[in-house]
Simulated scan of single mutants.
Amino acid sequence: MTAAPPLTQPAVPAPARSRPWLVADIGGTNARFGLVDAPGARPRDVCRLLCADHPDLASAARTYLERTGGARPGAACVAVAGPVEGDRIRLTNARWDCSAEDTRRELGLAHIEVVNDFAALALALPRLDGGDLLALGGPPPAARRPMAVLGPGTGLGVAGLLPAPGGGWVPVSGEGGHVGLSPATDLEIEVLRTLRAGQGTVTAECVLSGPGMTRLHGALARVHGGAAAAPLPAERICDTADEDPLCALTLEVFCALLGGFAGDCALTLGATGGVFVGGGIAPRIAEVLQRSDFRIRFESKYRMTDYVKDIATVLITAPTPALLGTAARLDQCLETTP
Rank of each mutant, 00 (worst) to 15 (best):
I237M: 06
A271S: 07
P139E: 01
V12P: 00
R222F: 06
V78K: 01
R144P: 12
D117C: 08
A58G: 14
A148N: 01
A204L: 08
F254K: 08
E66L: 12
Q199Y: 04
G278D: 04
I112V: 15
W21N: 03
D244Y: 07
T63H: 13
F261V: 04
E188V: 08
E190C: 14
H217F: 11
K301V: 12
G27L: 06
L232M: 13
V191C: 12
G28C: 09
V207F: 13
H217P: 00
G86S: 07
V114R: 06
A110K: 07
R145C: 11
R215D: 04
Y307C: 10
L208T: 14
V202D: 05
G325D: 07
D306C: 00
R295K: 05
L65E: 03
R105E: 14
A135T: 09
D306H: 01
T250H: 05
A230W: 02
V179D: 12
P211G: 02
P152Y: 15
T305I: 06
G280R: 09
F294K: 05
D132N: 08
G198W: 01
V46H: 02
A142N: 07
D239L: 11
D331M: 04
T68A: 10
L134A: 15
Q199F: 02
A230I: 07
G225F: 03
L91Q: 01
A135I: 03
L208C: 14
A234S: 15
G131Y: 00
G138I: 07
E243Q: 06
A230S: 13
L50W: 01
G200W: 12
A230E: 14
T63Q: 12
E175I: 12
D244I: 09
H224R: 10
I311E: 00
W96L: 05
I26N: 04
I281F: 05
I237P: 01
Y302L: 07
D132F: 10
T313H: 10
A262K: 02
W169H: 15
G226A: 14
A184T: 14
L128G: 07
L134N: 09
L150I: 15
D117V: 11
T313L: 13
T268D: 10
A197S: 04
V207M: 12
A94Q: 05
